[in-house]
């Protein structure tokens, strides 16, 4: 129900954007630029690249707006563009995705730090996410922060759902491990 209302709120702004209304385009930019920038920041882990992605994403969103049929919200449609562009950036930067199996041994040997007594802190988690390797960070942020399920992540990254699940659990272990290290250091 809430989603439906949400779509309706943006629907007429999106319609005006389709006519090339610059003010309406700016309205959507104001509404989404910050959250989209953070989505891209988490995937690319690079301020300049995230800005490039944001610019490219908004440009292609306005250019391809006629293909947006409104079966999802404009926000989630735009988010997919941002994610796809961010992934392309990461992949072209490394020339290849960090092989996901690279950290497998570590992850399996690492103890589970997620005890009830462990206290989470937002800053701590953010720092740990930034220190994760690209492959782990991708699956982890898509699942934890962008709210996709493993089926959707599998589609976005062209991997199987099982791989997405196992990658997430490894990334999660690694993240908790990094957080533990940080708390020791601080």
């Amino acid at each position: 129900m809430e989603t439906l209302e949400y779509t309706d709120v943006n629907a007429h702004v999106v319609a005006r954007c389709k006519e090339g209304d610059r003010k309406a385009q700016y309205e959507l930019y104001k509404l989404y630029s910050k959250s989209m920038f953070n989505v891209s920041m988490r995937i690319t882990n690079d301020y300049t690249e995230a800005e490039d992605v944001l610019q490219e994403a908004f440009l292609s969103a306005f250019r391809e707006l006629h293909t947006f049929k409104g079966d999802s919200t404009f926000g989630s449609w735009l988010k997919r563009i941002v994610i796809n562009k961010s992934i392309t950036k990461v992949r072209s930067r490394r020339l290849q995705v960090v092989p996901m199996e690279e950290h497998q041994d570590f992850a399996e040997e690492a103890p589970d730090y997620d005890h009830e007594e462990m206290e989470y802190k937002v800053e701590c988690i953010k720092k740990a996410i930034q220190s994760l390797p690209d492959g782990y960070r991708l699956v982890l942020t898509l699942y934890l922060l962008e709210g996709y399920d493993h089926g959707e992540i599998a589609e976005i990254l062209s991997i199987s759902e099982a791989t997405s699940k196992s990658q997430y659990s490894r990334a999660r272990k690694k993240l908790l491990c990094l957080m533990k290290e940080q708390s020791f250091l601080s």
Binding site: S33, K34, M41, R42, V122, K126
Partner: peptide, 9 residues
């Protein structure tokens, strides 16, 4: 969730 969106372009 909101606290994680801390960066601004």
């Amino acid at each position: 969730r909101d606290e994680f969106d801390s960066f601004t372009p």
